[in-house]
Simulated scan of single mutants.
Amino acid sequence: MKHLLILVLIVSLSACCTKNNKVTGPYLGQELPGDSAQLFAPGIINDGIATRDITFTPDGKEIYFGKNIGNSSFSTILFCKQTENGWTDPEVVSFAQNAEYIFIEPFISPDGTKLFFVSNMGNEITDANRFVTDIWTADRENDGWGTPYKLDTTINSKYPEFYPSVAENGNLYFTREINQQNFIYKSEYRNGKYEKPVLLPKEVNCGRARFNTTIAKDESFMIIPCIGMPDSYGGTDYYISFFDKEKGWSEAQNMGDQINTPTTHQYSAGFSPDGKFLFFMSSGTNLNGIKSLTYENLQLLHNSPENGNSNIYWIKADFIEDLKKQAIFTEKDTK
């Protein structure tokens, strides 16, 4: 019952800011960002609860995102849908309502036919292995999703797998944790099946720890949250690596202070359906004019974005082209 009450709290707090106040227009009616990052949909997507992982249907009319409480101990996936009467209030996806399990990291395939996510469903749940997770998917059925199913043992192993990201050709990129170390893998999708995953090279598996890569639809680059790089801003930073058919992957390049800060909560990125906007997770604080910490003001801050929990921001993705011009490719040993 305690778990159920916590999940209800997530849903009710997420919906309270939009109830009886329908918003219209693309991207929840938000003003489009420019070259500086902006908080995305405050009061709707970002509401004070830790928020991460965002993905869109190809037409942009459905937005899926994650909420978590207690360092992800209670996690679920919510969505908003654009209708003739405006955007719906946030609500939990039907298959992600069991508070005994965690549901995180939604990713909709570029063709819109599959919703990938990560869960510990089907595993023996204890305090020690609560985060032993697998990659799941659900197929599109009319205007909803079918019964989820876990990907087979080609992808899911005895180790935790997480953060699926899928290219237009169906190739799957994900993270596998082995002996408390995270590594990024690629599985090619051929003839309707995933092939044995391949560990990506050191240019991608960079730093002291790396995880949660986001692949470009055409596989021309990937964004890599990484810890322990010499030019880090002090926490987890977003890096980028570009792919060339002859040269391979470029050295991981810090994406700069437009999106990176000293915070550790920078490990989830995604794109708008047209690729024009980059969405990313980060955390920060904003007192919003509050000068005294009364009990009432503490409650206000707790239920407001930028209270130290993670938020989702967005920015024009144009600067990625500038980063591409700076890409450095390691010479291949031809001996």
Rank of each mutant, 00 (worst) to 15 (best):
G122E: 12
S157Y: 00
E105F: 14
D274Q: 13
Q82I: 02
G270F: 03
P148Q: 14
A50C: 07
G270P: 01
G207S: 08
S232M: 10
K325F: 01
Q253V: 10
K2Y: 06
Y185G: 04
P90Y: 11
G66I: 10
L200C: 03
I6Q: 10
T18C: 10
I227T: 07
Y194G: 12
W249M: 04
E168W: 07
K81Y: 00
K150L: 08
V204M: 05
F211P: 01
G289A: 09
E195D: 02
L13V: 12
S241L: 02
K202H: 06
K247P: 08
I44D: 07
E62K: 06
H3V: 05
R190K: 12
K2E: 09
D53L: 05
D134Y: 00
S14E: 13
N288P: 13
N71Q: 13
V93C: 09
R208S: 11
G70P: 13
F183T: 04
L172M: 08
E124D: 08
F211E: 04
Q326H: 13
G228V: 05
I328D: 11
G43M: 06
G207L: 11
F162S: 02
I184R: 04
N142A: 11
Y27V: 04
W249K: 03
T263G: 09
D274L: 14
M255G: 07
R190F: 07
D143R: 09
L151G: 09
N46H: 03
N260D: 09
E62A: 06
E321L: 09
R52K: 15
I290Y: 10
F117A: 13
T285S: 14
L78T: 08
L278G: 04
Y238W: 10
Q253N: 13
Q30A: 09
I108V: 14
G234S: 02
Y239T: 10
N142K: 15
N98E: 11
F103T: 07
A128I: 00
T285V: 12
T264S: 13
L300D: 08
G112I: 00
D152M: 06
K61T: 01
G29H: 06
D322K: 15
L293Q: 07
I10K: 15
Q266H: 04
F329A: 08
P273F: 01
E296I: 03
Y149W: 08
I10M: 15
N98P: 00
P230C: 15
V93N: 02
T334K: 14
I6A: 13
E31S: 10
A37L: 03
